[in-house]
């Protein structure tokens, strides 16, 4: 098990290095950040040159790259080109806000998606199943931005119950989380349903009924633990899509998290921030996948033995 985890960690670090390096090179090859930061036509060339030197953009790609890593190991990721603040400081301030959004989304997704999917499977073909699946198909096939806009239109514009954007109170949280949950909850409900249906058809479930276990016990002891194995895989895939989804949702609802920061930084070619954010996103993805791999092995005894 230790060896398995160590190999996974080494691979994870390699992935992060690759992503960061590729972003680094691509960002610097696709245009001069000066053009979007300063009005080139009206700014005197000396000023531009001063800033170039200040941000280190006058040096060769290799030199910039080396100093980026040096900075990384001493805990700095450069300064924002836009306002000169420390990149790490900006991100640290924003990360918790995104985590709040994603955390509630995950909670709502699991609490709604899994029970609804399991219920639908148990009532296969009956009214409850059809109702759950109709909602789930709708939620899954609409893109996040459309769900978001529909929710804003209905709850913020028509009913005026909830704020359409911003950050601060519980009310601000409802629509962004609902938007993301609409998509991911639907996905989990559908997937849980098919995973539970597959397990329900297996002989060991019939055997459990035959041994005298009441229906609820069979569900909890035999069906769900086995259905959880494919769900963990889906959870892993979903985390990546959740990060992507939260970027869009933060933009729609003006949520001041790192997703929104990424979009503003990219439009302004704020290289230091973009670079730092890429590092954060890659790190988050890799960490999530590592945890998924480990829990997958813990859930599935067959894998545990092979790895032992």
């Amino acid at each position: 098990m230790t060896r398995f985890i160590l190999t996974k960690i080494v691979r994870a670090l390699l992935t992060i290095w690759l992503v960061v390096t590729i972003t680094f090179v691509v960002l610097r090859l696709t245009g001069d950040p000066m053009h979007s930061l300063l009005p080139v036509e009206t700014t005197p060339p000396e000023v531009i040159e001063t800033y170039r030197v200040l941000w280190g953009l006058d040096r060769s790609l290799v030199e910039q790259y080396v100093s980026f890593w040096k900075g990384l190991f001493s805990g700095t990721l450069g300064r924002s080109f836009a306002d000169g603040r420390d990149a790490v400081g900006i991100i640290v301030e924003r990360v918790p806000k995104t985590l709040v959004l994603m955390g509630w989304t995950l909670l709502a997704t699991l609490l709604m998606g899994i029970p609804l999917g399991a219920l639908a499977a148990m009532h296969r073909g009956r009214a409850l199943d059809r109702a759950v699946m109709a909602v789930a198909v709708a939620g899954h096939s609409l893109p996040e931005y459309l769900i978001g806009i529909l929710l804003i239109w209905f709850f913020a514009v028509e009913l005026r119950w909830l704020p359409s954007s911003g950050y601060g109170t519980w009310a601000h949280l409802v629509l962004p989380v609902a938007t993301l949950t609409g998509y991911f909850g639907a996905q989990f409900a559908r997937f849980t349903r098919s995973a539970v249906l597959e397990i329900l058809g297996q002989p060991h479930v019939l055997a459990a009924h035959a041994q005298g276990w009441p229906g609820r016990a069979v569900m909890l002891r035999d069906v769900l633990p086995n259905a959880a194995i494919p769900l963990v895989t889906l959870f892993g895939f979903s985390l990546g899509k959740l990060i992507a989804g939260s970027i869009i949702v933060e933009w729609i609802f003006a949520w001041p998290g790192i997703g929104r920061l990424l979009i503003t930084s990219v439009t302004h070619r704020d290289l230091a921030i973009v670079q730092a954010l890429v590092l954060v996103f890659a790190g988050a993805m890799v960490l999530a996948n590592l945890l998924i791999d480990i829990s997958y092995v813990l859930l599935n005894p067959k894998l545990r033995v092979i790895r032992r």
């Binding site: 297996q202 002989p203 060991h204 019939l206 055997a207 459990a208 009924h209 035959a210 041994q211 005298g212 276990w213 009441p214 229906g215 002891r221 035999d222 633990p225 086995n226 194995i229 859930l299 599935n300 005894p301 067959k302």
Partner: peptide
């Protein structure tokens, strides 16, 4: 509910595919 109470106590059954009849995670 009454039937559940009979199963496994008064009457038990074993099936054709023993390997698949056991819960793989227990």
């Amino acid at each position: 509910r009454e039937l559940v109470a009979e199963r496994g106590r008064r009457v038990a059954i074993v099936f054709q595919d023993p390997v698949a009849s056991l819960n793989p995670v227990r």
